[in-house]
């Protein structure tokens, strides 16, 4: 499965193939993780907050390709995307293992994935650098086998996404 998560509406609906899902997070009801760890110790694999996030994290887990589109803030994901990424911890177990010589959580049924991140709104090279380091760290926790980060200005987001989807279609 292929998954597109975006923090703004994209003009791509005609381009979606079978076994693809697209969510415009900005139009969904997703509240902040409250750090209760219910998804690890009370209802393992299920978040106790029953909002739209519960539709999305199973898709994240199932996908072998993900495309995340997000504004960048202080070198990290801005609010909309970051809120969803925090709500995705039910895909992990509480238990900890050694992975790439660091301690990380054991994953549940999460397919290793190729990630493409279209990052817009970065102000300077320093901010891009911090974001590169962040995604490198995310890769360990989010099962990214490989990833590409494409920095663009906001007006180029749709065009860039279209090119990536074309590539996905051909591959």
């Amino acid at each position: 499965m292929k998954l597109i998560l975006s923090d703004k509406p994209l003009e791509i609906s005609t381009q979606l193939g079978e076994r693809s899902a697209y969510f415009d997070l900005s139009s969904m009801k997703i509240s902040n993780c409250v750090g209760c760890f219910g998804c690890w110790v009370k209802t393992p694999g299920r978040c106790v907050i029953r909002d739209d996030a519960t539709m999305i994290y199973p898709c994240i887990a199932e996908s072998d390709s993900v495309l995340y589109v997000s504004r960048i803030r202080y070198g990290g994901y801005d609010t909309v995307m970051k809120t969803m990424l925090e709500r995705a911890i039910p895909v992990q177990q509480a238990f900890i293992r050694i992975h790439c010589n660091e301690t990380h959580h054991v994953q549940r049924d999460v397919v290793p994935k190729r990630a493409v991140i279209v990052a817009y709104g970065a102000v300077d090279e320093e901010e891009c650098d911090i974001f590169r380091r962040l995604v490198a760290r995310n890769a360990y926790n989010m099962c990214f086998e490989s990833y590409d980060i494409i920095f663009v200005v906001e007006s180029m987001v749709n065009e860039t996404v279209k090119q990536i989807l074309d590539k996905w279609e051909k591959s």
Partner: peptide, 13 residues
């Protein structure tokens, strides 16, 4: 705390 390798979203806000 560290949340998803960065700042908790409420703190970011």
């Amino acid at each position: 705390p560290l949340y998803a390798d960065s700042l908790p979203v409420g703190f970011l806000d």
